[in-house]
Design a protein around this nucleic acid. Structure first.
Lengths: 346, 346
DNA sequence: CTGAAAGCGCTTACAG
DNA sequence: CTGAAAGCGCTTACAG
């Protein structure tokens, strides 16, 4: 037989009163001692800490949060939890927040839900002290709305002016890829981005496109429109985009794909056509995904976990009262491997 | 200038009193109406719901949890957050829990921390209604300890007798891989597992090994000890294990690796040796990682996200009072692709 | 440095 | 079906 909500255990939890009683002090003193407040005699503090440990006392978080008005919880919103990039970010954030004794409340938000976020997601309502946006791509207009929220906001993966953000220098990363290919002798360079179907302007592909085109123009090269494809940032999207490029009358000899996953798709397309990557077509990705090394993918590496850590630290600073809007660019660098080589004609 | 803990907003949040006042009822009635309790006149309920919406009222979760004694939070413990497998599980869990209005509190626990979990992780103390263990590999002995916890426990990724668990039939999956290779004509089969250095018995590799050896013995084949390697369930571990196998006087003609990531490592090793996968050596993985398709990896596919969903549903059942220890096996199947073919000699 | 007491915003027997 | 009131377990001015 089943009963809803039956109590799980007979023994009532030890609470702050038990500790206060055992220590012969008031609950106020226990509370102060255990949270390292000033103005508690060192001897008293030590005694209380020892007793609390003996009793296995841990403050009830819900009560503490209610009383203090601080939820000690950070919300993290992301459209997709399962990409390598996102889970790496989450791991970095979690690492820092756990140390700072903050909880992480994760919400997945598709593009439709973006609006809801801006007016305060019901899920997060009154429950978080700040919100981290990962790959939400709100762009500058959305960012202004965000900055008007009552909560500190930190955006990861996109550089924004009106709100604190941390991201790599996307233009520079793309330029690195372009330079590498130019040095190898390539003159016909394709580029595969994504999200061009989104309803909002999306800074990341735009910045990378800019950096790529810019680096080419320095040496007098241009990217013809038919060399620009949308790969939707997915493996299969990268595959199909690459097929389209290779079906052109005069296909590019090298392609820069804005994510490693799209680059894996490109390698797949080459296998399907019986072509050899790095010889028949050079491929550069972006991210330095763990699989990239094993397949020999040349890529622009970004320290994703570090981005997560840094974002969490900036959030902690904001919670500590910092009102500054900061932007932290993070290092990135080209990792040359086997998927790039001189063009076939050369 | 910075001030710690300064209040973020001037407007006080609307609370249950505001709603009660506006509706001309007591807070008790508001609380009941908003949580679909019985014994509230339908007309009253409707009116309260409308008013609450107008006022944008959302109950303060911390207060509700303190008063009710239920935290409506599920803890999830995992040694590694960033593997594809884990993030896929988390996504499935999150999907189900969010619908049921439960929060997810994630903790990463390395092997060292396993003991702490059993005696109640301080992080989770009094804060969760149940705990989900993902890939913690506690084995039967640990499971018995777990079942004595005051909290409902569901283990994912490993089948256990004394605690509710959901996993694939690992022996059958390995047997599928063996059969596929036997049918292709292979007679010298290697196997790469992992975690043999862990302090606890680890069911998953053991079961897979058993299934593999069992399927071979049916056709009169055995796996010599030198054909068994530890790949540590990492890409590089798989790579090094494969190198070791290929350096044997008489190497296997096919290798089953217990994860796709190790299989990616095996493919890497082959490239390093200038060998062709599927021709010089056949490779079978386990998981059906998204990248597997793009590199043409033959693998044993498991529906990872569904395992997460199912685990969350079982947890919800347990919270609803079900005392039954359940085990839910989940389907899996061989996905034949390009990394397997007949043995070179044939 | 410490304590008495109010209060955080809910939920839930209990009594109608 | 509804309300008055106690209570959940803390934190924090306020007063000493």
């Amino acid at each position: 037989m089943r009963m809803s909500h039956e109590p799980r255990s007979g023994k009532p939890r030890v609470n702050i009163n038990d500790v206060a009683h055992a220590a012969g002090v008031s609950t106020a003193t226990v509370s102060r001692a255990l949270r390292d407040h000033p103005y508690v005699a060192e001897a008293t503090r030590q005694r209380i800490i020892r007793i609390a440990e003996d009793l296995h006392y841990v403050a009830n978080a819900n009560a503490a949060r209610l009383a203090s008005g601080q939820s000690r919880t950070i919300g993290l919103l992301t459209p997709l939890l399962t990409s390598w990039y996102t889970s790496e970010i989450v791991a970095g954030v979690e690492e820092v927040l756990t140390l700072a004794q903050y909880d992480l409340l994760i919400g997945t938000a598709n593009a439709m839900a973006r609006e809801r976020i801006f007016r305060g997601d019901a899920r997060f309502h009154q429950r978080i002290d700040g919100v981290l946006l990962v790959d939400v791509f709100c762009s500058e207009a959305g960012a202004r709305q965000l900055s008007e929220m009552e909560l500190p906001v930190v955006v990861l993966g996109e550089q924004l002016r009106s709100v604190t953000s941390v991201s790599v220098d996307n233009a520079r990363g793309a330029a690195l890829a372009a330079q590498h290919l130019i040095e190898l002798g390539h003159r016909r360079l394709g580029i595969v981005g994504g999200h061009s179907n989104l309803d909002v302007a999306h800074n990341v592909p735009t910045e990378r496109m800019g950096g790529f085109v810019g680096a080419l123009s320095v040496v007098g090269l241009r990217v013809p429109p038919e060399y620009v494809e949308d790969g939707d940032f997915t493996i299969d999207g990268g595959r199909r985009a690459t097929h389209r490029l290779l079906e052109l009358a005069e296909p590019p000899t090298a392609v820069f794909l804005m994510s490693d996953e799209m680059a894996f798709g490109a390698m797949w397309a080459l296998r399907e056509r019986g072509l050899q990557v790095g010889r028949d077509l050079s491929i550069v990705g972006f991210d330095n995904h763990p699989v990239a090394e094993s397949v020999g993918l040349t890529t622009v590496g970004q320290p994703v976990r570090e981005i997560g850590r840094l974002g969490a630290r900036l959030m902690l600073e904001a919670l500590d009262g910092s009102e500054d809007v900061q932007h932290h660019p993070v290092e990135l660098g080209l990792v040359a491997r086997d998927t790039t080589g001189p063009p076939p004609a050369a």
